[in-house]
């Protein structure tokens, strides 16, 4: 028995020690506090003066990747910027029924304006209409509802133009380098999503205008791991490659790991979405990453700003319109070494 007791004691101590070690490894706090890095709209002009108090309800999917996390973070930061805005944000969810329930709760709370980034635009259309019918102005973000009856204003990104601008940038670079028939690769996101199809179509169309075409193409899952796996295979299949467009900077970390693992430096890479990580690499200009095409989560900040103006019945200062426009499509700018400094503020942490 004593030997058994000793064994138990030893195992118990080991387990406790291991637990203590593991518990000490959970922190993600940086040693020195980093600067706040949310993109917020400028606080100048007549509209920035405090006005009528507005309560804004906010509902978005779960922040399960860098871009989506930045959307929620930006919305909250922007709301914090206004002294006249009270933000009621619900916990992000990828369950459509849950999100519908959350929006219904916000309607019952009688918020003044609703900002909804639906997990699925079609599925949330009905509750958007309910809100509109209840006299609440709805700002629909990015994933659009089925009918304008469900929203007062929509703001979102432009997937097709993202592809177009990536294609145009790469075509210009190839022409500048006098490469007559370049091999241009593409690492897409989840192929079954319409947004991926639009990005790819824009890319293909833009390259076709320049007389080029898309060569090796793979589709990843918007995760670093799938990006690494697909790119490793793509690079094996493409012994000659002049340019590569990766749809998404979150999966781009894996794409870069694969390029690094294969020891390839013979082509230029363009990213997508605009993460801080990619922007830093563009700025450093020491590797294959030369540019990224924005699909910026700063649209969430703008959505809150729009919601406030709707609540206060204001228009956008520099436009002749008295009202907030119904549709606002953000521009997918190309961020390259030349202009990266002016875009670092909208870069998000992947």
């Amino acid at each position: 028995m004593p030997s058994l007791d000793r064994r138990r004691f030893l195992w118990g101590t080991t387990a406790l020690g291991a637990t203590a070690v593991l518990a000490g490894c959970t922190s993600n706090e940086a040693p020195q506090a980093g600067a706040s890095n949310a993109a917020v709209a400028g606080a100048s002009g007549a509209n920035s003066q405090p006005g009528k108090a507005v309560t804004i309800g906010f509902s978005a999917p779960a922040a399960d990747h860098g871009w989506m996390a930045a959307m929620t973070k930006n919305a909250k930061a922007q709301a914090g910027q206004f002294s006249d805005v009270t933000l009621k944000a619900t916990e992000g969810t990828n369950d459509v029924n849950q999100q519908i329930a959350q929006v219904e709760t916000l309607i019952n709370d009688k918020v003044d304006v609703l900002v909804i980034l639906p997990f699925d635009g079609k599925a949330l259309t009905e509750v958007g209409r309910q809100a509109t019918d209840a006299g609440i102005q709805v700002v629909n973000v990015d994933r659009i509802f089925d009918t304008p009856l469900a929203y007062r204003a929509w703001i979102g990104g432009d997937n097709y133009r993202m592809g177009v601008n990536a294609g145009n940038y790469i075509a210009a670079q190839m022409k500048a380098k006098n490469i007559s028939s370049p091999v241009i690769g593409e690492v897409a996101g989840i192929d079954s999503l319409p947004l991926t199809q639009e990005r790819s179509k824009g890319f293909k169309d833009a390259l076709a205008r320049a007389g080029f075409s898309v060569g090796p193409r793979v589709s990843a899952q918007f995760t670093p791991e799938s990006g690494e796996q697909q790119t490793a295979n793509l690079l094996q299949g493409a012994s000659k490659l002049d340019a590569l467009w990766n749809h998404d900077d979150d999966q781009g970390i894996g794409v870069l790991a694969a390029i690094d693992g294969a020891g390839r430096k013979d082509f230029i890479m363009v990213g997508g979405a605009g993460s801080r990580n990619m922007m830093n690499l563009i700025k450093a200009d020491s590797g294959v990453v030369k540019a990224t095409v924005l699909y910026s989560p700063s649209m969430a900040s703008s959505a809150i700003a729009l919601a406030r103006m709707l609540g206060q019945a204001k228009g956008i200062g520099d436009l002749a319109e008295h009202e907030i426009p119904a549709l606002i499509t953000t521009y997918s700018a190309v961020v390259s070494k030349e202009n990266v400094d002016s875009y670092l503020d909208v870069g998000f942490d992947s």
Partner: peptide, 15 residues
Amino acid sequence: MVVARTTSGASTNGL
């Protein structure tokens, strides 16, 4: 292995 391959840890690993 995954961390080595992707040079990153993420909750989306191992899907």
